[in-house]
Design a protein around this nucleic acid. Structure first.
Lengths: 229, 229
DNA sequence: TTTGATAATTAGTTTATGCTAACACCTGGC
DNA sequence: GCCAGGTGTTAGCATAAACTAATTATCAAA
């Protein structure tokens, strides 16, 4: 049962990835949130938390939540690197669309060797971002943890560059691609309706209306007035 | 635990592949042989045999052995196709040597989707043989089951084409590559020592002495005298 | 401060897969 | 035609990871 490369099971890698995601902005990952993301029942999480804790991969504060230890963080970043390199590779060399790469990478990330990831990364010229704009950890475990602002928070009148979108909902990704909302695109925030209403942006002269919930998942970098052409 | 594509677990796929290999020349696959190839204890095989039998993937004759049903055969060939397409892909597009592809493919074969295999096959021009000369089943489950003769049985004085070598021992594969013994190469059998002694062949004017055990694993196609240039 | 809702945990079961030890079956050599 | 040694199977146990049901902890609001 311990036949995965790196000595961690598929489940363990999935838990660590999820805990990384939930605790990366500093706090604790809760049982509830982990259970929801992994689509398992909360007691399953309690059980795994105990095992991960005994293995020294996480710190557990009962009834509070968990955080990764350094060792756990390293393991999580290793899996995340695999996932994102795979996404770039599939998109670039096997003609996958950006809305299909996630599921395939999700399975492969547990089976590929370090060697294969290194070869893929080299073939790709060591990319720094995946097709959805997420930063790719280096083989040494360094990652760009810059916090990007949400488009839903960008001030009306400001110019921003769309940097990152969520990768886990294929239907959303297809819609975003249709609308031209892909990482790197420049947007001017032209308006926003109150009470969690939509954000209106100008994309190369065309208006786009983006619902609040969707806008909240789009991560942007503000453009200073003197920047840009 | 049933998260593999195709609904079969990794273990089940490995057992079916092994049973296919052991029973492809018509007979039964025995518990002992399956256990040895998969590096598990014989009772583990008995347990799995019971489950596979209940699932309708194999026929079990107690104390005799097992054979694949049509359903089991289909599943085995699907895994074998994945494995071999992966081997060709890794060798061709990711600069793997033919002695390294096996282990990587062995893990990936359980994780890739049909979709990815189809894309790889297309990128490769739908290859019919893997880097070791083994035939690749089609997506529909057809496979070239031509029985090739062993070099150890080729008559002295005959001309043969080396068609297929074993893929599972990296050290052997490195040695064969050094000696120029790769699929497609033409050999003249110039001699053989008695009592399971080595076979001597002429490869493009150079003599090669091949021990009996190794020669027994090399599969060849006899060349009729009028053939070849 | 009590309480009720929500979240977390424990207890106990299930399934897949492995193991060792013990027992059962078969076949070849006498 | 019988028996020994090897092969196959059963019994019983372990572990990882999931589940449901029951219990406990926490927190915020009345």
């Amino acid at each position: 049962m311990r036949q995965e490369p790196g000595g961690l099971t598929r489940s363990v890698e999935d838990y660590l990835k999820t805990i990384y995601r939930l605790s990366s902005q500093g706090g604790f990952a809760t049982t509830r949130d982990i259970a929801e993301i992994l689509a398992v029942a909360p007691p399953s999480v309690s059980g795994m938390v105990k095992r991960l804790s005994e293995a020294g991969l996480i710190e557990h504060v009962p009834y509070r939540g968990v955080q990764l230890t350094n060792q756990g963080r390293r393991a999580a970043l290793r899996t995340i690197r695999r996932h994102r390199i795979l996404e770039v590779y599939l998109a670039r060399f096997l003609a996958y669309d950006w809305d299909n790469v996630h599921d395939e990478a999700e399975r492969l990330e547990h089976a590929v060797s370090d060697e294969l990831i290194a070869r893929m990364a080299r073939a790709l010229g060591d990319p720094s971002y995946d097709p959805h704009g997420a930063p790719i950890p280096t083989a040494e475990g360094d990652i760009d943890e810059t916090e990007l602002a949400s488009l839903a928070d960008a001030p009306v009148g400001s110019d921003v560059v769309l940097r990152q979108v969520n990768d886990d909902d294929a239907a959303v990704l297809r819609y975003l691609a249709e609308q031209g909302l892909t990482p790197g695109v420049r947007l001017r925030v032209t308006g926003r309706q109150p009470f969690n209403g939509p954000t209106i942006v100008d994309l190369a002269g065309v208006a786009r209306i983006i619902g609040h919930e969707l806008a909240a998942t789009l991560r942007c970098e503000p453009l200073l007035p003197e920047e840009g052409r």
